[in-house]
Design a binder for these strands. Structure first.
Lengths: 201, 201
DNA sequence: GTCTATAGAAGGATAGAC
DNA sequence: GTCTATCCTTCTATAGAC
C-alpha cells in the first residue's frame, strides 16, 4: 500500500499543500492537519520544512521528467512524436493541474534547484532530439529549423495554456467547462500547427 | 520627478521585492530597507501588506495590458499584427523580466484577482480580435482557425519561454547569453511559424 | 513512533514622541 | 510625515513524557 506508513502520508499531504501554496505560502501546521497527524512528526521524518519541500519537489519533477523524455529520448518518428506528446501531455496535466505552476514557480524562486535536478538520473538529455531534427532537415523532410526552437515551441504551446488558465479565462471570458473543452481541442490544434508548418504544407 | 515622494519610493521598492519573491515570500522589512526608509512608513501609506501588494499588482498589470491590447484592440492587418506583437513583446519583457512570472503566479494563488482586474478600464476586450480573425477566415485569406486558439498560440509562444527560462536553460544546457540570443531569434521564428501556417504556405 | 507543550525567532502592525 | 520602540501573533523547531 501507498499510505501504510506515516512518512508517505506526510509526503502526500505536503504535496497537496506545497503545490497549491508554494514553499513560502505553505504552513507546517496545515500539512500536519492535511495528513491527520501531529506537527512534530513532520520534523521527525523530514527534519526541516526545506527538506520536506525538496522531497515534494523532486517527486513532482520525477513525474514530469518522463513526459519530457518522450520527446527527447524516444525514437518515434518526429511527426508521430509531436502528435503523441501533445495528446498525452494534455491528458497528463488534467490529472495534475497544479504541477506546471509549482515547478515553474519554484525554479524561478530558487535558481539552484535546477542544478540539483540536473545531477539526477532520468534528467532529460536533449541530444537525441537534436540529432533527430537535424536529420529530418538534412533529408529535406521538414523545413529548416533549430531543434531548440522546435522544442520550445512544443512545450510552450502545451504547457502555458494551463499555467495561464486564470488569465485566459479572464481575457476570453470563459467558464471552467468551456476552457477545458478548448484544451481538448488543442490536442489537434497544436499538432496541426507544428506539423503543417514543418511539412510546409 | 518620479521618486520625489515617499509614497513612490515605497511603491518602487515594493515592486522589486514582490516581483522577485511574491506576496508570501516578501518581507515588509525588506521592502523598507530597499526603499531606504522606515517600516512604519509602509503602513502609514498603504495600511497593510495586502494593500501594498495590490498596488504593485495593479501597476504591473497596467504595464502588461497595453501589450495585450496591441493584439486585441488595434486595427492593424493580422499578419502585421502578429509580427509586431512578437517583436515588441520580446523587447518589452527583456526590460521587465520578472513581470510574467509575477502575474501568473499571483493569479494562480488568488483566483479573485482576475475579477478585480476585469472591472478596471483598459482591461483587454477580445471581441475585436475575434471579429478580425473570423473575417480573414471568411474571406479565405487564412486557414480556418478559432480566434481563441490563435490568441493562445500567440501568447504561449511569446510568454512561456521567459517564464520557463530556468527550465529550458537546464534542459538545453545553455548559458544566459546564449539563451538571450535565442529569444532574439524567436521574434522571427514565432512570426514565421504562425504566419506560414495561417497562409497555408 | 507518537503526542503535548513550549522555546525562540520573525513578521505584521501600531502607539506615541518629535 | 517620520522615527523608535514595542505589542501580539504566527511559525518553525525541539524537548521530553509515554
Amino acid at each position: 500500500m501507498k499510505d501504510d506508513k506515516t512518512e508517505d502520508q506526510i509526503l502526500d499531504a505536503a504535496e497537496k499543500i506545497f503545490q497549491r501554496k508554494g514553499m513560502d505560502g505553505a504552513r507546517m501546521q496545515e500539512i500536519a492537519n492535511e495528513a491527520g497527524i501531529n506537527k512534530a512528526m513532520l520534523h521527525y521524518y523530514y527534519r526541516t520544512k526545506r527538506f520536506l519541500f525538496e522531497a515534494v519537489f523532486s517527486k513532482a519533477f520525477s513525474l514530469i521528467a518522463p513526459e519530457i523524455n518522450r520527446v527527447v529520448n524516444d525514437d518515434t518518428e518526429l511527426f508521430e512524436k509531436i502528435r503523441k506528446f501533445t495528446h498525452s501531455y494534455i491528458d497528463f496535466i488534467q490529472k495534475h493541474p497544479y504541477l506546471p505552476n509549482f515547478i515553474i514557480q519554484e525554479l524561478n524562486r530558487d535558481s539552484d534547484f535546477i542544478k540539483i535536478l540536473q545531477e539526477k538520473k532520468g534528467f532529460p538529455d536533449f541530444r537525441n532530439f537534436r540529432a533527430q531534427v537535424e536529420k529530418e532537415v538534412r533529408d529535406g523532410n521538414i523545413r529548416p529549423i533549430k531543434a531548440e526552437q522546435l522544442f520550445i515551441h512544443l512545450l510552450s504551446l502545451n504547457i502555458f495554456p494551463f499555467l495561464a488558465a486564470p488569465l485566459f479565462k479572464g481575457f476570453l471570458k470563459l467558464d471552467d467547462k468551456t476552457y477545458k473543452a478548448m484544451m481538448e481541442e488543442r490536442k489537434e490544434e497544436i499538432s496541426d500547427l507544428l506539423i503543417k508548418y514543418l511539412k510546409n504544407e
